[in-house]
């Protein structure tokens, strides 16, 4: 089928699909009239049961922690796939012994990046640690920490090392995060007989060490996401910085 014909067929089919979907969404509750019971139940129950005000974090790591376990495994599998696809073949590595031809960044870029790597890492750690008190949590904070590593590359450090960070260390961090979340789930099973049950002391609402296993889950997810994103960056950079073997 030629490109034009495919375009027309797609337009027609998608037009029909769009019309059907629009008819379908008229059956939903009007925007702003949230009917369902779960949000109200959570709002009533969570501050007492878990000593935290962050309903979203409580949902992600406690009430619907099983879904997060599945998402962790998706993340892990996707990064394994990336690493397998982008591995540097031995033939490519042998032809790549020369110095890189990329220009060194300007002094301003290097100075700013060097100055900001530390604060960005601390910011990421702060977002991860306060996930049960403020918006944020393991997922956002983990990506911020990986962004700090990318900043190190942009500042020129990667040009000498040819990669963002030691690949083994990044793989170790990611595996530690994934295993940590799994261990948390199993520990709940061992301690109380229910997988992912919140079994640590609940503490007072608003303190940093409160809400039981939710901050622990945040840290585990933060480690995994940071390791995963930094590993993906590292793999792509290593590929992109290789001299073309032809």
């Amino acid at each position: 089928m030629t490109r034009r014909a495919r375009s027309f067929v797609a337009l027609a089919a998608l037009g029909v699909l769009g019309a059907v979907l629009v008819v379908a969404v008229t059956g939903l509750e009007p925007f702003g009239h949230y009917p369902g019971p779960y949000g109200d139940v959570l709002a009533k129950v969570v501050p007492d049961e878990r000593h935290t005000g962050q309903l979203v974090a409580a949902t992600v790591f406690d009430y619907r922690g099983f879904d997060t376990l599945g998402e962790e495994m998706i993340l892990f599998a996707a990064v394994c796939g990336c690493a397998a696809l982008l591995r540097v073949l031995r033939s490519e590595r042998e032809e790549d012994e020369g110095a890189p031809a990329r220009p060194v960044p300007s002094f301003a870029a290097r100075a700013m990046s060097a100055a900001l790597v530390g604060p960005v890492m601390v910011l990421g750690a702060y977002v991860v640690a306060h996930g049960h008190l403020t918006p944020g949590g393991g997922f956002s904070g983990g990506v911020v920490v990986a962004g700090a590593l990318l900043l190190a590359y942009a500042g020129g450090q990667g040009l000498r090392l040819r990669r963002v960070g030691s690949i083994t260390m990044l793989e170790g961090t990611e595996a530690l995060g994934a295993a940590g979340f799994l261990a948390l789930a199993l520990a709940g099973l061992i301690a109380t007989g229910a997988l992912l049950k919140n079994f640590l002391a609940l503490g007072t609402s608003g303190m940093l060490l409160s809400a039981g296993t939710i901050p622990v889950g945040n840290v585990a997810v933060g480690l995994e996401v940071a390791g995963a994103v930094a590993l993906v960056f590292s793999e792509f950079l290593e590929q992109a910085l290789l001299e073309d073997p032809e």
Binding site: G39, A43, A58
Partner: peptide, 19 residues
């Protein structure tokens, strides 16, 4: 408050979808 369950679903989905 608005529903936290859908926000929990979307939050994890954003990061995993990027990966």
């Amino acid at each position: 408050v608005v529903d936290p369950v859908v926000q929990a679903l979307t939050l994890t989905d954003v990061v995993v979808g990027a990966t």
